[in-house]
Design a protein around this nucleic acid. Structure first.
Lengths: 182, 182
DNA sequence: TCTCAATGGAACACGCATGTCCCACTTTGG
DNA sequence: CCAAAGTGGGACATGCGTGTTCCATTGAGA
């Protein structure tokens, strides 16, 4: 049972790591500690090394992604509509997307496979069944297109020349045309 | 005027860098030198540092990309057809794509902007004019979708569960639906 | 008020990639 | 054949991120 101070410090460090690494994944532990307002030795007291801190950030990402996916009501409407809601919900996690899409990203969703991937498969299956998704495109490709389109939207959003709403509109429009039934 | 030996060694080192970094961009200069069959000191004799070698690889990429783009006959047929040929031509540059799309990639096409980008803009402009590309999608988004779709195709190709031809078909199909006129 | 967990800062050692220098050997060209 | 260019390998120093240890200080709970 960790004390209150311990829990608070750990949380501050993890949040600082997200803030730092979402823009520069190569940021040193010293920078993370500074951003968290703690000493480097304190950071190493809570996380034995960089790998352990990355693991903590990874777990936080899983939770946030899971919550966002659940909030997109994946069981509602057609499979394509659910896919579009899912994409929009993920796009709102800008900082977290930086950890996944940024150069030499520390977080790799492919290593999850268990929870999130299963839910996406469910949505795709429903899309095939109700005819809202193109039946001639294999599920691996649909999943890839979802992620890469989300990646593209995140890129444009990061550029700053388009608003979040504009990018979201472009994304779901291209998604509907690209993988929806003709 | 560099001697024959100098040119040969430089070329071997650059090719070794491509071979190494396309699968592991963090490979040390020692590994690159070993792969090239030369000593580490020899590598440093031709390239003052890692940055200079990266620049040489970058330039080689430009040339290969430029050649591939030219070979796709960007002036022929509709804008969409040219875009599809361009995507297929780029997909064939597997090793080079690894340098661009891989984690912590050493090569960034966004830093080119001058030659390649202009040609792509030309294709898009023609696509808007002849009605083959969706007019309600801004060129920045079309360019992004092209690259991210190519990225997705490269990902699936790297997985190894699909043939080069299958992935190419999926890519141009999704591209036509996603950014083509409805 | 006292005690103990928690902290911050400094110092140190370690590993790794890198850059440089040097010297003996091999190859190329005049 | 001989000089010059090129090469390989080793030795060395450097910078950076990292992990560890030690100690004085702070703050919250008993």
């Amino acid at each position: 049972m960790p004390s209150a101070a311990t829990t608070r410090t750990r949380q501050a460090v993890v949040e600082a790591a997200v803030a730092c690494w979402s823009t520069d994944p190569s940021a040193s532990l010293g920078e993370v500690a500074a951003r968290a307002g703690v000493g480097r030795s304190t950071l190493n007291r809570h996380f034995s090394g960089r790998a352990e801190l990355v693991a903590a950030v990874d777990q936080l990402c899983r939770e946030r992604f899971r919550a966002a996916a659940a909030g997109a009501r994946p069981e509602e409407g057609t499979g394509l509509e659910a896919l579009q809601r899912l994409a929009l919900a993920l796009l709102e996690l800008r900082d977290l997307l930086g950890l996944v899409f940024g150069d030499d990203a520390p977080i790799d969703p492919d290593s999850w496979e268990d929870d999130e991937h299963a839910e996406l498969e469910q949505v795709l299956r429903r899309g095939y069944a109700d005819g809202s998704l193109a039946g001639d495109l294999p599920p691996e490709w649909l999943a890839t297109v979802l992620w890469t389109t989300l990646f593209g939207a995140w890129l444009l959003l990061r550029e700053g020349r388009f608003s979040s709403h504009e990018v979201g509109t472009l994304m779901i429009r291209t998604l509907a045309r690209g993988v929806g039934s003709a």
